[in-house]
Nucleic acid binder design. Sequence first.
DNA 1: ATGGATGCAAAGCCTTTGCAAGCTT
DNA 2: AAGCTTGCAAAGGCTTTGCATCCAT
Lengths: 147, 147
Amino acid sequence: MKEFLRTKGFKMTPQRELIFRSFFELGRHVSVDELYDKVRLQDNTVGYSTVWRNLKLICRVGLAEVVNIGDGITRYDRVTNIPHGHLYCLKCKELIEFNVEQIVGMLAHKTSDYNFTPENFKIEIQGYCENCRESEVEVVEETKSDA
Amino acid sequence: MKEFLRTKGFKMTPQRELIFRSFFELGRHVSVDELYDKVRLQDNTVGYSTVWRNLKLICRVGLAEVVNIGDGITRYDRVTNIPHGHLYCLKCKELIEFNVEQIVGMLAHKTSDYNFTPENFKIEIQGYCENCRESEVEVVEETKSDA
DNA sequence: ATGGATGCAAAGCCTTTGCAAGCTT
DNA sequence: AAGCTTGCAAAGGCTTTGCATCCAT
């Protein structure tokens, strides 16, 4: 990893190593705060912006990418060989991954109709997971307080 | 429209009418600022938060939905019968729509494997449009200033 | 008259940045 | 030594909210 970073012009530091390691240990859909908390457990001197900057670095070198489901929290997802989309439960806010290998293939083909060169695909389906399905009706009638 | 809103418990006001009309005139991928600017051209007394709140209302009653491409600008897209995805050019930031009717059908089918009940689909492909394709190489080597 | 709607200003929140000091190479 | 990194604090930028007032029903 150190070597990998150096070839890209970045240095390795103890903080960076801790942050990188923590990120990959956490796995998927990691938010800055989650990562920050985990990192601080092992070294409570690490600054928030350091975590934040390294998260961006991880993206920059292609090891993660942003997942933005629009709930105000930016998550970072490890890049894998198998493309996956996200099923986002509107009730319990759970994020489930699902394979989109075939779909991506078709999408890639489809973009050629538009003379578009795809770099990456983001597929997100909002709905209700198995457990929340029955109660989905309740959600429709939310508070009407502020428009 | 006035009737439609009333059935949902909302009132119609001059500002609201102007905002709604402006939104639908603007068409697709409208940001709060864009809408605000357009509205102010016709009535420079309308407040920013009024525009903002009404944009949320338009979403709430199901006439629009959020498009979040992660560039920090929340856009609102009119809901149509034909599902569409977005091709986002990483260079010129252009947002191109494309039909995803078939894709959505397949995705809907696929979610059943996960016992997931889909409500809406968001498909976004980042890449380079026809015009920016040649120069995409330049983009890779950005400034290395801050991680 | 009642309760939603509006405007303004002020908070909130998460994301970025400026800078001086510290480390890695 | 040179330049990337770090921490802290402060600034940004967009989103929300409090509140008194106004208006639609």
